[in-house]
Design a protein around this nucleic acid. Structure first.
Lengths: 234, 234
DNA sequence: TGCGTCCGTTAGAAGTTATAACTCTGTGCG
DNA sequence: CGCACAGAGTTATAACTTCTAACGGACGCA
């Protein structure tokens, strides 16, 4: 990490320009969405013209892949920070106000709120990961590795709080096909809860971020918390 | 409906060409995704060249809006068919095999399975409605009207099966801000359950359709049914 | 039969990604 | 210290895209 400062100047400059390109790309995505990302517009906004960007990225696809990788990395970091309590935004800012019906699960709750904060912080970044898939695209291995890291953090948290819910047939199915857990020693109930965490919170968040709740009147934050409460008994 | 046959030949031809354009558009979306939809390619595949399509659609946006409208209409019809039992695919094909822990709720279950069938039938159509939103786009009123129709069908089903779950503060919040229900007389518990139906099943379906479960080993259909089971106690 | 509307055409402007070829500058090595 | 080479940025070009404009022809209605 610290060695990047001692690199050759040529390479240093290259890394700096790459970083600026990605930064402009994020800005552009934030205003016009990922599908409208234009290499030409990025080059223009940087004062250089057109094909110069091809020195730094093989093409639009490689740039977007890099952005997706950064998005996954950012989520993994946010999860890790929330799990270890080193959350820069403070430990659950809206957490203690509304204690759940039962015992507190600091890990899972902190993860959920970190996820929501992370998603609201940049909706386009969220949709880059969880939005409409690009038909031909397959994520490279290092990106799926980050996804596994995220899942491992979630499984840690779910395994930390035991469940008193009776096992269902689906719990057994999930336990029989647990290769997706990547060797994580979580019990079946934790597998089930991690999956429910993922699917339910994604359900709420993706609808909220896509604007399907706008004009409906209720508060999406309360819906999120209600789903989080229901996860407590799952 | 039957009057379209008696229309003027000019208008009849126009409607026919519009329909064929939309058909080709769906084919193209199915293979390359909505973002890659090209008017030029559609025209080429129809044997006519380029700008001829502008006689029928003001532009790409209008065509896509039309496709979104058709997608909503199709989902509303599928829901309505499932709710009234006139389901062309037969009443819940995988339903009776695994009876839930409690009383059967034919309406809600049928709706859920109709939703999954509809989604798997054409994933791109699903993402046209529930996928990454286009930044500048706002759906016209008649489309939001179809969305309300879908929600009304769901609320009907949820109101039909009473809940023995104690009311939560969020149920009250949903009841206080119930303008999204469009005057539907559903009780608070039904509002809550409809919302959970929507968000949870969307969570599972969208992750499944986007391919986030591929290679994980478990069966997404069982996850869907497990979430449907959990809705029974919500 | 004739007139007018509407359809499909070609031409062209402005944008995109991406490649090829050229210039020039800065780096590192002898 | 100077020189040669690698690499950055340039322009030109090709092949796309959406979309506008102007033209010709055919079809339907009176």
């Amino acid at each position: 990490m610290a060695e990047t400062g001692t690199k050759a100047p040529r390479e240093r400059y290259r890394a700096q320009v790459r970083a600026e390109i990605k930064e402009r790309a994020w800005e552009q995505i934030a205003t016009a969405g990922a599908s409208a990302l234009s290499l030409n517009a990025i080059a223009r906004s940087m004062g250089m013209s057109g094909p110069a960007l091809y020195r730094y990225f093989a093409g639009r696809d490689e740039l977007i892949t890099e952005l997706i990788r950064d998005a996954y990395r950012s989520l993994a970091d946010a999860f890790h920070a929330a799990a270890t309590g080193s959350d820069p935004a403070g430990p659950d800012p809206l957490g203690p106000d509304a204690p759940g019906p039962d015992v507190a699960r600091p890990d899972v709750d902190a993860l959920a709120r970190a996820l929501r904060r992370w998603a609201l912080d940049d909706p386009h970044r969220y949709f880059l990961i969880y939005g409409t898939p690009v038909p031909g695209y397959h994520a490279p291995d290092d990106i799926t590795a980050i996804a596994s890291e995220i899942m491992a953090t979630l499984l840690d948290a779910c395994a930390a709080s035991p469940s008193d819910r009776p096992a269902t047939p689906f719990d057994a199915h999930l336990d029989e096909h647990r290769q997706w857990a990547g060797g994580h020693p979580a019990p079946p109930a934790a597998l089930r809860r991690a999956m429910a965490f993922w699917t339910r919170l994604h359900g709420v968040l993706s609808l909220e971020l896509a604007g399907h709740f706008t004009g409906m009147g209720f508060d999406p934050a309360l819906l999120f918390e209600a789903e989080l409460d229901d996860l407590r008994v799952t």
